[in-house]
């Protein structure tokens, strides 16, 4: 499901229905069922048997959706935000720096929304294991169910536990080479890593602590040093999202012509008023175009309007000149958390 390269959609599959950038709905496909959205009615039967990535039209209307195969990133986007999730710029760098490889064993606390757990599971694959711990019982139960539904239970071992107090030990040794701590007080959990067969001390162990506040980092760094971690480094990952757009190119000559046009019409108006006082019938001699100009109205099609002011101009419309520009998302994630990395060298025999 998350770990294979399936090409054709089958009944029973979990698919992510892309409705818009902000609305992505996870759906298990079942014959004769339908997905009801405010954009239309979409039949599961129209999806089953088609390739992943297909565009599916609503039974009526012009709306359509795309049917996508699940990935950890899409799954995270589809989540109703139960708790703050570790976003992909952070999660990808965490996995990179923790040097997680196919077959790695990883300790994660807490599980949270499971967004990072999914990404970790993808990285270790079927030969590795993620040992994930969650204090909050509802969240734990939710995660257990999700991993089962996502066919990841063989890779992910969930434990309901306050690791800061009760440690990491479970019935089997975890022997992890990578540790990720997203806890309010990671410094209370670090000593617990040394109780029981938690770490694989024959290999280097990489750790990452994820904390929003700088004071948490200070305490974490101190405790990491006390426990023999080295190469301690704290980083922030600032991510921004941009979109490409086309912006209208408005020339100075056009601007000058607009002003000339206004001036001309104003002067004609003055002339007209003058003449009106003298020989009102002269007006009747004016051409139709001049008459239109005299109205001085922007809705008047004779007004020089090089940029479609007051008209509905769509980005990129023919008849105008456009230049590529980038725009940033209106609200950025200014801060997620500080990432404190460290390395515990292997024990020498």
């Amino acid at each position: 499901m998350f770990l294979n390269s399936k090409r054709i959609i089958e009944e029973g599959d979990l698919v992510l229905i892309w409705i818009s950038r902000t609305v992505i709905r996870p759906v298990y496909l079942k014959k004769d069922e339908a997905l009801q959205t405010k954009f239309g009615h979409f039949l599961h039967n129209d999806m089953i048997g088609r390739p992943f990535g297909s565009q599916i039209s609503a039974t009526q209307g012009r709306g359509f959706v795309h049917v996508l195969a699940p990935t950890p990133e899409l799954w995270a986007l589809s989540l109703p935000h139960r708790t703050q999730i570790v976003y992909s710029p952070d999660s990808s760098y965490i996995i990179h720096r923790l040097q997680i490889r196919p077959d790695s064993k990883v300790v994660e606390a807490g599980t949270g929304s499971g967004a990072l757990t999914h990404a970790l599971a993808r990285a270790v694959g079927t030969d590795g294991t993620i040992f994930t711990y969650e204090y909050h019982e509802d969240r734990h139960m939710q995660a257990v169910k999700e991993f089962k539904d996502h066919e990841l239970s063989d890779i992910i071992t969930c434990t309901h536990r306050n690791v800061c107090e009760d440690g990491f030990q479970i019935e089997k040794p975890t022997l992890a080479t990578a540790v990720f701590l997203d806890l309010p007080a990671p410094w209370t959990a670090i000593p617990k890593l040394f109780e029981g067969e938690i770490l694989n001390r024959k290999e280097a162990v990489h750790i990452c602590c994820f904390s929003p506040c700088i004071e948490q980092v200070s305490k974490t760094v101190k405790v990491l040093e006390e426990h023999g971690f080295q190469s301690i480094e704290m980083v922030e990952n600032q991510a921004k999202r941009w979109e490409g757009h086309e912006s209208m190119v408005r020339s100075v000559d056009e601007a000058l012509d607009v002003l000339r046009d206004v001036r001309k019409r104003r002067n004609m108006g003055i002339e007209r008023r003058k003449r009106k006082r003298l020989v009102s019938e002269v007006e009747a001699e004016q051409s139709e175009e001049d008459k239109k100009l005299l109205r001085g109205d922007y809705d008047n099609p004779v007004v020089y309007n090089p940029w479609g002011k007051g008209e509905r101009v769509k980005e990129g419309d023919d008849g105008y000149k456009w230049a590529p520009v980038s725009t940033i998302e209106p609200e950025i994630k200014n801060h997620t958390s500080y990432l404190t990395f460290a390395l515990l060298p292997p024990l020498q025999d």
């Binding site: 700088i214 609200e331 950025i332 994630k333 200014n334 500080y338």
Partner: peptide
Amino acid sequence: RMHPTMTAKG
């Protein structure tokens, strides 16, 4: 609890 604001105008 010092940290940059979580969100900001882009």
